[in-house]
Design a protein around this nucleic acid. Structure first.
Lengths: 143, 143
DNA sequence: CTACAAGTTCAAGTGAACTTGAGGTCAAGC
DNA sequence: GCTTGACCTCAAGTTCACTTGAACTTGTAG
């Protein structure tokens, strides 16, 4: 096992020390103890941080991420939930691909209005449908 | 042209009226005038909202989105910037695809530790690299 | 004409995700 | 043994993207 202080974790992960403390407080990462006052981390925390980064990039909240790998360490949600997240992600990916294509189209297309282009219209349709879905979800979830 | 009041825009777009006013204040959408005090929107605003939704889903801030389609209406940034955004998006898509695969893998794999799986490790690597890139960018940008 | 639902403004509040600042502790180097 | 600097805690501050509340106006129905 390799021991690291917070500065080394920060350096190797690219995550500021303040954020590391914040994540620890939230229970997202853990130190294996203290050396005096100072937190001692093991290399596993780097993977954990990568996982967190991944989840964040995917649009999950820290709480959601925390729920994914429960207190004992490894990914915890049941298969059904995991697959549901994957499907959700899949939809996001399609959208983002649509946006990417839309941007490339916008860059390439000399037409005065992108709104006339079927590709562009389709892209918009996908996005708003998804937005509606997300809003509906976030409203029903808290209750 | 079809005229809509704020409630209809809200209903058809799924975006709350409060958010529509907020977006208008930010200059992201515009009403074509007033009927008494009341804002009057045209159907084009729905497309605009879709575009905003799309940008948000892609992880752009409202300011960035605003910058994409300047005051005059249509997407405005120069081709280079547009293509840069598309490339950025492309990287996000790859990451998300990695996460999606990772989640599916986690759901399917009965191993006690996902960390041992090369697929999973690779996914993590991609995510943290991207995170580092994003952090570096957001620090250099404001200055 | 009155009531009222649906709109309006403007200021303040909210929640998420951090960051910053003040003041304190401790191991190491001079 | 004292200074230095990296670390600590805890509270408060910041940014983003909205939402909420209070007080006000207006078009329409009775």
């Amino acid at each position: 096992m390799k021991w690291m202080d917070i500065a080394e974790v920060a350096r190797r992960s690219g995550v500021p020390a303040s954020t590391l403390r914040f994540y620890e407080e939230k229970g997202l990462i853990g130190s294996v103890g203290r050396r005096g006052l100072r937190r001692v981390f093991v290399s596993g925390v780097l993977e954990r941080l990568s996982l967190i980064a991944l989840g964040r990039a995917a649009g999950f909240s820290l709480d959601e991420i925390g729920a994914m790998f429960a207190p004992d360490g490894r990914p915890q949600v049941d298969r059904v939930q995991l697959l549901a997240k994957a499907d959700e992600l899949d939809r996001s990916i399609h959208q983002l691909a649509a946006l990417r294509d839309g941007l490339r189209h916008a860059a390439a297309c000399p037409a005065p209005s992108h709104m006339e282009c079927p590709t562009f219209q389709r892209m918009l349709h996908v996005a708003s449908a998804d937005q509606a879905r997300r809003r509906a979800k976030s409203r029903s979830k808290p209750g």
